[in-house]
Amino acid sequence: MQFTTLIVAAASLALGTNAAALRRDGARLAQFRIFGAEGCKALNYGFYTVDYTDIGVCNAITADVESVNLEVQTADAAGCTLFIYSDANCSAGETATSVNVCSDVPEETESWGSYQILC
C-alpha cells in the first residue's frame, strides 16, 4: 500500500514539474484579442498574452485575423509598444496598437500575421 502511495506521489510531482516548465517566464505585459472580421466585434477567436519573455521576439498569429484589440497593457509594460504585422515575420505592415483601439488589417492585406512587443 505504501509503495502505491509512493508511486502516485512521484507521478504527481513529475506532472507538476512538467506543468511548471510549460508556464511562461516574467511579468504579463499585455493581452490582445483577435477577430476574424473587421471592427473587433464579430468572430472572436480569443486572446493572446504577451509576457516579459516576448520582448523583441516575433510571434506568429495562427488564425485568419482581420482585426485586433489591445485589451490590457500593464504597468510593467511602461515604455513598450505592441506592434502587429501583415506578414508572419514581423517585417511588413507594422502597426502600433493602443489600448481599446481596434486595428483592422490594411486593405491590401488578407490578415494580420505576427506581433511583437518592443521596449
Rank of each mutant, 00 (worst) to 15 (best):
V57Y: 06
A60L: 07
Y52G: 11
V57Q: 12
D76C: 04
D51T: 07
V65Q: 01
V57A: 14
G56L: 11
G79H: 05
A88C: 07
I55C: 11
C80F: 12
D64C: 04
V68T: 04
T53S: 15
V72E: 07
E94V: 08
E94A: 10
L70G: 00
F47A: 10
A88Q: 13
I55V: 15
N59P: 03
N89T: 14
Y48K: 05
D54M: 05
D54N: 14
C80L: 06
A75Q: 14
T62F: 10
G46M: 06
I84T: 05
D51I: 04
N89Q: 13
L70I: 07
F47E: 09
E66C: 03
L82S: 01
S86I: 08
S86V: 13
N59W: 05
V72Q: 09
A78F: 08
D54P: 09
T74Y: 06
Y52I: 11
Y48L: 09
A77M: 08
A78G: 06
S91Y: 10
A63R: 11
F83N: 13
G79C: 11
G46Y: 07
A75K: 11
C90Y: 02
S86C: 10
L82D: 01
A63V: 07
T74S: 10
V68A: 01
G46D: 12
D54Y: 03
D76S: 13
A92M: 15
C90E: 14
T49N: 09
V57F: 10
I84A: 01
N89D: 13
A75N: 12
Y48N: 12
Y52H: 15
D76Y: 10
F83D: 03
I84Q: 01
I61R: 01
G56T: 12
S67C: 09
D87I: 04
F83W: 14
V50I: 15
S91A: 14
V72N: 07
A88I: 06
S86E: 13
D87E: 09
I84L: 14
I61S: 05
I55N: 03
D64T: 06
A78Y: 06
C58A: 06
A75M: 10
Y85M: 07
E66G: 04
E94M: 06
A77N: 05
D76F: 10
T53C: 11
D87F: 03
A88Y: 11
C58K: 08
S67R: 06
I55A: 02
T53R: 05
N89G: 08
F83L: 14
F83M: 05
